[in-house]
């Protein structure tokens, strides 16, 4: 599985330079705009994520790989969920689908009352912009831009005016305790500070979910603790957080654990640590 992923990655890179036949099969009907009549069975209020038998298949020439094999899962507003599983368990695929970077092959994904599994690219970009705050393991800050500009970026794509953008970005930076580092470039910040900028950027558009992929993976233990404390603070303030990790000591901070293996949910339980 892992080897296949590597191979797939190599194949995709060629895409930039020439014609190439997509290896992933995307059902054309899924690209269409959603049918308005389908919204009648929208989920109850308070439910932010509803995954209904999500499948994700990759067509690798001769064989088809089932990265996700019927995942069903619901999450409420202000939950703090850790998605766990070993490499190849499908947790990255699930994260990409939850983060609207990818669409399920079959199944429905309702995010904050909207069926996003059938949206086109442009609509998905809008959903990512408004609903999802990404925090990556490698921070993924724009290296040529300062902290403020980094945090402003999602607002830029929301079409928000200069003044409001600046105010909201400053506010978000204050919130993560970096009010005094506004004009520093990422290279002038420590790892912990960079991740705080990333969190501020994720929060600035007031997203429905904060989606963190191994947020402490590139940090030392103490700085990692600080980031986890920040997450806890945000959770207490009402933020819905989804943490993707394979480290049990990080996952233990979450209130609910979902374990994946071979593309299926094997365990889903609440953690009783308070």
């Amino acid at each position: 599985m892992f080897e296949n992923e590597e191979k797939r990655f190599e194949v995709r890179r060629i895409k930039l330079w020439g014609s190439y036949k997509p290896t992933r099969s995307i059902d054309k009907t899924l690209m269409a705009t959603p049918d308005p009549s389908a919204s009648t069975d929208s989920p109850p209020a308070g439910q932010v994520i509803d995954l209904q038998s999500i499948h994700k298949n990759y067509d690798m020439g001769s064989e088809t790989i089932h990265a996700l094999n019927g995942v069903d899962c619901r999450m409420e507003v202000n939950e703090y969920v850790a998605i766990m599983g070993p490499s190849g368990s499908g947790k990255s695929t699930l994260m990409n689908i939850i983060g609207c970077l990818d669409r399920p092959s079959t199944g429905e994904y309702w995010l904050a009352g909207e069926n996003v599994s059938k949206l086109n690219d442009k609509a998905l970009a809008r959903v990512r912009n408004r609903m999802i705050g990404f925090v990556f393991q490698t921070f993924n800050l724009l290296s040529k831009s300062n902290a403020l500009q980094n945090v402003e970026t999602p607002l830029l794509y929301s079409g928000i005016g200069r003044r409001e953008r600046r105010n909201r970005a400053l506010e978000a930076l204050e919130r993560v305790g970096l009010g005094d580092r506004t004009f520093h470039k990422p290279s002038e910040l420590s790892g912990g500070q960079r991740q705080r900028v990333a969190v501020a950027r994720a929060l600035v558009n007031d997203p429905a979910i904060l989606l963190a992929d191994e947020p402490t993976g590139n940090l030392d233990t103490r700085t990692g603790e600080d980031i986890m404390a920040l997450f806890e603070e945000l959770y207490s303030a009402g933020q819905t957080i989804i943490l993707v990790t394979h480290e049990p000591e990080i996952a233990v901070r979450a209130k609910r654990h979902i374990h994946l293996r071979d593309g299926e949910v094997t365990e889903d339980y609440l953690v009783e640590n308070g």
């Binding site: 442009k122 970009a125 990512r128 912009n129 999602p154 794509y157």
Partner: peptide, 21 residues
């Protein structure tokens, strides 16, 4: 530049940039 900034493009897309953007 496009090759070099592939990751930047990815980040911008994750943050909500459309193809048009």
């Amino acid at each position: 530049s496009v090759t070099e900034r592939t990751r930047e493009i990815g980040v911008r897309k994750a943050l909500g940039a459309t193809r048009g953007n």
